[in-house]
Structures are given as structure tokens and as C-alpha cells.
Write a protein that binds this DNA or RNA. Structure first.
Lengths: 218, 218, 218, 218
DNA sequence: TATGAATGAGCATTCATTCAT
DNA sequence: GATGAATGAATGCTCATTCAT
């Protein structure tokens, strides 16, 4: 046997990874209940037994897929270099990053939706949930710098504002197919999406710039 | 058999309705794949056979549940009486209606999420999809009256604006559990929800009132 | 469809019974762990699903088989008519009944052995265990009548004496195959068995008749 | 690697022995079908592969455990020094030895029961079965000396009498749990067991001493 | 209209065993 | 001698669905 073929056969890290990727894809397509372990194994080009060898159960595999997906999102946000960028410019880049990340990773939306169906029971058993909060610091820094330089209103709660940004990007992707069916328009098509994003960005910037009121009360 | 007991036993419309309600609840709890026909039958206080007698298959039952859910939403919107209300007041009422409806009908969010998981395949087989579009007229009327009276900017696409409103209400409810787990805050709790809605309403109104630019491009 | 064939197809009590009989046989052959539900179903000429329809689980089916087996043994003992028979004659009939019952029902020995392997966990969940004690009354009556008429020693504990009788019949059957292998003699063969039973009966009668000492101490 | 650690790791005889002991225990707990090779490996503090390295298969491991158990019993009997002891005293010591050995080695009873479940198929493939017969010589010697000196009846078949002794000790241990459950009394508890043994010993001695009749017929 | 009985394919999971190092 | 990785066939059990009354 050549070194190459043996590397394919005996490759613990590779097998583990192929199973994780296959699981993420199958869970995306059918949700937790809809995914089949034999389909995951087949897609990973291994057998069902290895799935249990590496992950223990379908549930633990779902948790691993969820964690991996969250991990990647957190890592991408942490890699953002916006410290030296002027606040107004930075917030636009941040908003676009979030929306583009969602668009580029539809598996995240499906997994998170499924997780909400199960009242986040898998996430509760995971340690990843504690890793998310610190990431909000990226947005918090932009908002604080904007408020300090007078271009943004003060006292905008960063977590609530993150929610608003997230909502506007998430909804269009999550509901893409029902929206297309009920309204006959695909809001994820480049032209349409650009227009929606333009309006949303304008709305968010308008809100941050406006002086009257703030989101946390008096 | 006495007349009374036969009236209890033989109640076609009642049985059909109990099955539909039970199905809606089970599909909400576990999605299409996660719901079990015997659980639906048990919840409806009938037997599995009746489910097939009235709806033909699990899939057709899901379609019926989805249609019923959409129907109710469409009916509620159509019943809104905002024709005589000044635009600024009307839009606030409309926004609140949408968000409150979502909050009061979590089954809709779960069913729609599930439907998107399946690329809206059930909706495609349904006639209900054509009933949704006309409803946008309610919002369109408000926006047109606002633009005509000069309080709102012109040329706001009503469908896109509906999307924005919907997104802000949908996201918080759809992602309620993962948000609570990752951020330690339940955004559906009355106090928290009121603050989020206040900020969002202010943002939407700010956008409509602003004169510069519009949502459909230059 | 003729009446006969329909009786085979739709026969709840018959199906239940066939499953129970098949299960008893498979549990006898392989023990609890060794028995296979698909083999039970096949032997019962039905499908695995019916097994769960009627009994709920493999474990509950084992309990049912065990109960059924104990039930039959209890019923057979209760049917013994020894009240008017002289004590010495009655005890011989009783002893022979026990040993012959064991020989005629090897499934009981195997099921009971298996149950002891599992520390009687199934029996503990059953109500049958309370039905056994009263049956000892049959033996108790014989011993009391024998003591009263002076042919048997007094104060023989009926439960302990039942144990002794049972042990002598049980062991030869339970260990039939290992005994045959290690000693080259099948103690269940008619001739051999008759000799063993003769000796054992003589020994038991000798003990009962002897005046010195008793089984419960001074 | 240091000399010490390598001595711990590389210990063929130790590993083999640990596997055999672990197997005996697991087979005792669950029978052949109920025992799991990974549990045996875990209990032996090694891996499943070693089990196959040393014993070839689960079946051969069971045979080895059975042989080892029989071996120990045979060795213990062979070690008995009763040649110079008067027959009446010797038979009491012998009886007590058998019953105490059973009580001290419950794994033997479970393994033998399991072996009978499988019609002694493993024993048949083993050479140990031929080792058992000669051991009966110990009992035969006592009976012959007793008959010669006139304290015991003549022509008692030693094998059949071994069976009787064995049965009385075996049954109480083998059926310990079902007896406790059905009669509410644990016949292996010291006080209870002493009384049962006393009665049984008296009965056996009474039989040997009696002059009338014999166990092999006219 | 209603219901208990029946079905076969499929489900997640575990089995004893072997491979490659 | 020892080990982690890999496998295919089974395991107990559940699925949506249909039959017969």
C-alpha cells in the first residue's frame, strides 16, 4: 500500500473532520430529527460505527456541529481589525461583515433555528455559549468611539444593537424560501439584496446619528 | 348507544379540528420530522387512522397546519381598521400589531422556520401562498398616505419595508432560546422586550421621516 | 376470505398467545440476552412490531413469559387433590408431582436460572411473586397430617422441606448437559432417572419417619 | 521508557490472567450472551485486541473461563485429606466442603448454568470434562470404607450420591434470588443456611446409615 | 365515522472482530 | 506485546401507513 492511500484509510483527524462536516451538512438539510446517521456516515465516506467512535451519539454529534459552527463565527468576528477605523466607517464594515457571514454560511442559520426548536438544549450542554459574549466587545468599541467623537448618539446598548443588526441580516436568509413563495421575489438575489442592505444600512446609521432619545431609556 | 354519547363520538368537524390543532402543536414542538403521528392522534384524543381519514398523510397534514396558520395571520391583518388613522399613528399601530402577533403565535415562527428548512416545498403545493400578497396593501396604504401628506419619505417599497418590520419582530422570537443561552438575557421578557421595541420603533419612524435618500436606490 | 383464514389474520388473543409461547421458547433456548426479538416474531408467525404492540418491550415480554410459567406451575400445584390421601402416600405423590413437572417443563428451569442470573429483577417487578407462598399450604397440610397421625416427625418446616424436594428434582434437570459431559451419564434417561428418584424418595421418607431431631433445631 | 514502566506494560502472563479473571466475572454477571468483550477488556485494564491476541474469540475465552473454574474445583477436591478420617466424620467434612465451595464460588454456579443453557457445547470442546470423573474417587473411598466398617449401607453408587450432595448445596445458591423474592426468605443468610444444612446433613447421614434397601436396586 | 390490529421499512445504536502500526 | 482505528452485520425498537371490521 502506498503512503498516500494508507493516509486516506488511517487518518483519525481526517475521519473525525469528515464526519463533522458531513453532519453539519445533513443537520442543515433536515434538522436534527430529519438527519439520518447512515446518511452522515455515507457522506463522510466512513461507516456509522466511526460516528459513535468519535462522537458517542447523534446528539453529541449535533452539539459538536453546533459548537464548530459557533466557533467559526466567533473566530471570524474576533479576527476583524476595526480598531483604527473611524466609527462611521467601522460600523458599516461591521454590519456588512455580519450580513455577509450569514449569507456565506447558511448552515449556521439552519442549525441555530433547529437549536431554538429544541429550546437551546444542546447549547446548554455546551461550553461554547460562554465564548460568545466577549465578541460583543468589537461592536461596543465602535459604538463607544462613535459616541466619544460625537458622531453617534450615546448610551446605545451594544447587545441590543447587535440584535438589531443581526435580525436584519438573519431574517432574509432564514425565511428566504417562504418569502420567495409568498411574495414571488428572492431577497437573496444580488440586486435585490443590495437594495435591501442599502436601505437597512441607511436606517441603522440614521438611528445612530440621531441625537434625540436612546435605546436604554433616560 | 344513546343520542348524547353518539353526539360526542360522532363529531366530524370537531375531530378534524382537534387533529389540526394537535398537529400544529406537535409540528411546533418538533418540526416536521420530529413530530410523531401517534402523538398527534393522542393529543387530538382520537386514533391514528382518523388522521389519515381526514388528511391523507402526514405531509398533507403539515400543509393543512401551515395553511391554517398563514390563514389566521392573513385574516388578522385584513381585519385591521387603519384606513382613517393618521399615517404616523397608523404605522406605529401596524408595527405593534405585527410584533404582537408573532409574540402571541410562536407556532407560526416554528412552522415557517421548518418550512424554510424544506425550501418551502409544502407551501409550493398550497394555494395559500397567493393569499399573502394582497395583505401588503394595508401597509402600502399607510406609506402612500404618509408620503402624500409629506410626513414620510416617498418611494418606500412596501414589501421591503414589510420585510424590515417583520425581521425585527421575528428574530427576537425565533432566536429567543439561543440568545438567552449565549447572552444570558431573555429578550422576550416584558421589560426587555418593551425597550427593544421602543428603539426599533424609533429607528423605523426615523427612517420614514428622513428626507434624504430612499429605499429603492438613487 | 373464508372464516378460517380471517381467524388466522385477525386474532388478537391468538397473536398475543403465539408471541408469548414463542418468547418462552426463545428465552429458554438463549436466555434473556441471547434471545432475539426478530426470532421471537418469526417463530410467532408475526412481525416485530406486534411484539411491542402487545408487550411494550423485550423486558416486559420476558416478565410476561416468566409470569406465565410461574402461573402454570402454581395452577398445577393448586389442582392437586391430596386432601383425603393418607400422608405417606400423599407425600410420595407430591414429590413425584414436583419432579415430573420439572421434567415436563424444562422451560421453567431455564427461565428461573436466567432470572437468578439477573438477581430476580424481573420477578421483583411482577405481582406473581406473591402468588407462590400460599401454594406451600398443599405440602404443609400433608406434613401436619403426617405429624398428627404419628407417621412423620413433628416440626418440619414446610418451606425448607419444599426446598429439599425441589432441589433434588431441579438439579438433575438444570445440570443435565454438564453432568452428561463430565460423567458420561444422562441422569434424565428413564432408567437412570427412576433409580435416582427411588433413592431420593427413600431418603426423604426416611428423614420424615425418623423420630430423632427435627429440621428447626431443638 | 524506564525499566519499571516497561515491566508494568509488558506483562504477558499478567495480562492474560487479568483478562481471564475479568471474563469470568463478566460471564458470571451476564452469561455468555450478556457479557460484552469491551467490558471484559475494560475490567482487565487492557484493550479488546489483547483479548483476541490471547484467546482468539469470545467463545474460546468463555471455554477458558469455564475450564479455569472447573480446574479450581477439581484441584480443591483433590487437595482434600480425608484418607485417614473415620467414614462418618469424613462424609460430613466432604459434604460441608462441597457446599462451602459452592457458596464461596458463585461464579461456578452461574457459568455452569449458562453452560447447560447451551447444552454444554463449550465443555464438549474442552478437555477438562475428562478430569472430573477421577475426583469422585474421594467420595467413593469414604463410602467404601463406611460400608466395609458397617456404618454405611452397601452398594451406594458414589456418582449418584455425589449428585444428591451437590443438588442440595447447588439449588439454594443457584436459586437464591428467586427464592428470596417468592418466599421472602434469603436461604443463603448464615442462620437460615446453617439450619438447612443441619437438616440436609442429618437426612444424608440417615440415609447412609439405614440398612434397608439401597440406591442401586435389588 | 370510528377503531384495534397489522405491517415492512427504517431508526439510532452496539456487536464481535480485524486492520495497520 | 500492545494499541487506536476501522468495519459490517446485527440489535432492540419506532416509523408512517394500511387492513378489516
Amino acid at each position: 500500500m502506498t503512503k498516500e492511500s494508507s493516509m486516506i484509510k488511517r487518518n483519525p483527524e481526517g475521519t473525525r473532520r469528515r464526519i463533522l462536516d458531513a453532519a453539519t451538512e445533513e443537520f442543515r438539510l433536515g434538522g436534527y430529527a430529519g438527519a439520518r446517521v447512515d446518511c452522515i456516515a455515507k457522506r463522510a465516506e466512513t461507516n456509522e460505527r466511526m460516528l459513535y467512535y468519535y462522537f458517542g451519539s447523534k446528539k453529541k454529534l449535533f452539539i459538536a456541529a453546533l459548537e464548530h459552527t459557533y466557533d467559526a463565527f466567533i473566530a471570524a468576528q474576533s479576527a476583524l481589525q476595526l480598531a483604527g477605523v473611524p466609527p462611521e466607517e467601522a460600523i458599516v464594515l461591521y454590519i456588512r461583515f455580519i450580513w455577509d457571514y450569514y449569507a456565506a454560511h447558511p448552515e449556521m442559520i439552519r442549525l441555530v433555528n433547529n437549536e431554538n426548536l429544541h429550546h437551546a438544549e444542546h447549547l446548554r450542554e455546551s461550553t461554547i455559549r460562554t465564548s460568545f459574549m466577549p465578541v460583543i466587545g468589537v461592536l461596543e468599541d465602535i459604538l463607544m468611539r462613535g459616541a466619544a467623537s460625537g458622531v453617534f448618539r450615546a448610551q446605545v446598548d451594544p447587545l441590543r444593537f447587535y440584535l438589531t443588526i443581526s435580525a436584519l441580516g438573519y431574517y432574509v436568509l432564514s425565511n428566504r424560501y417562504t418569502l420567495a413563495e409568498t411574495f414571488g421575489r428572492d431577497f437573496m438575489q444580488p440586486d435585490e439584496r443590495a437594495l435591501v442592505q442599502l436601505a437597512h444600512t441607511e436606517m441603522l446609521l440614521g438611528y445612530l446619528r440621531s441625537a434625540v432619545g436612546n435605546s436604554t431609556g433616560p
